[in-house]
Amino acid sequence: MTVPELGRLGFGAAGIGNLYKAMDDDVAAATIAAGWDVGLRYFDTAPHYGLGLSERRTGAFLSTKPRDEFVLSTKVGRILESVDNPAGARDTQGFDVPANLVRHWDPSEAGIRRSIEDSLERTGLDRIDIAYLHDPDVYDLDAGIREALPALERLRAEGLVTAIGVGANSADALQACVLGAELDVIMLAGRYSLLEQPAAAGLLPLCLERGVRVVNVGVYNSGLLARPVVPDNANYNYAPAPAPILAKAQALAACCNEFGVELPAAALQFARSHPAVCSVVVGASNAGQITETAARMAADIPPELWTALVARGLLPEGALHG
């Protein structure tokens, strides 16, 4: 199983698909350009992100770069279908875009092939390097494993994609997929972070055993770990953080501060520390954010910080790697 070299940090393109708020084309272009300028060469998008807007903006930028100098991943499973929208309704799944398209779950081989063809058309690029089945547990995990994953295996055998995988928020769902197919890579969202590590017990060791690479995303837990100081109104899993979760995040931030480390830098570098993880993918809503993220990934962190986090019960024993 071959996964292209992704680099420690990759660019997540949900933000430039108008996640939560609209973004001008020039701001989107400047944001992804800033990622390129700091050395990022792995770009992840999906039809879901802005009903295709993210794919179009990502492709428009990457089409100006030599094709062999970057890696592009997108997702399959959600087909976009045109609908009439005379009232100008907006998307209801987190993206500030017109609801001129609807997402339709289709795990069939025909649906997977159509999804790849549609993504190629939207990006304007000649190939997709990595294709992930997107959130099968949200729809029908059994059908995803039974239909979509064998279809992806055939696309890989035909050379239509280089590598295949699954992206999900559930460590259990991803583990079932790793056991159910010959995957190259998975995209793990929010389940191996400085705050919590449910993937550490079963999924990540299984990936190491099977040679499946892990792209770690959602490492700030919906923004909870994204700032040096955790506010009392912070969110966790896209909702107000429960008191125990908030208290732990604030304790993590306080410990980091004692060692002169920003919480987001520790969160990024911890997320990359597991030997199964090959890359951490982070989004941005402006150029400054992605530049700051790259600096945090490169920041010096004293080993004593990690030891202190374990000693205070903020990280479990055995959580330190290397």
Rank of each mutant, 00 (worst) to 15 (best):
L314S: 02
G10P: 07
E55M: 14
G59P: 08
H321K: 09
E5T: 14
I32V: 02
Q93T: 15
A265D: 15
V212Q: 00
P66E: 10
P316S: 05
D126V: 02
D118Y: 07
N221T: 04
A284K: 13
Y192L: 02
A284P: 11
Q250W: 06
Q289M: 07
P98N: 01
A311M: 11
W36N: 01
S115H: 09
T291K: 07
D135S: 04
E196D: 11
D184K: 06
T162H: 05
V27L: 08
N233E: 14
A200R: 15
L149F: 01
A271G: 12
V27E: 15
I112M: 13
L80I: 08
G7Q: 09
A287C: 06
N169W: 13
A189G: 07
D44L: 13
V310N: 11
R296V: 00
G318E: 03
E258V: 07
A189P: 01
D24L: 02
L40I: 10
D172K: 06
V76W: 05
A87F: 11
L224S: 07
E158G: 14
N286G: 15
R156L: 09
R114Y: 02
I116Q: 01
L51P: 03
L309A: 00
R312G: 01
D232V: 09
S193L: 07
P228N: 02
T307H: 14
T162S: 03
I112E: 05
L206W: 04
A287S: 12
L62P: 10
R156K: 12
L62W: 10
A265F: 15
R8N: 10
L320R: 07
G313A: 15
N237Q: 14
A200V: 02
L206P: 09
A254F: 06
K75M: 02
G77H: 10
L101W: 15
D135E: 10
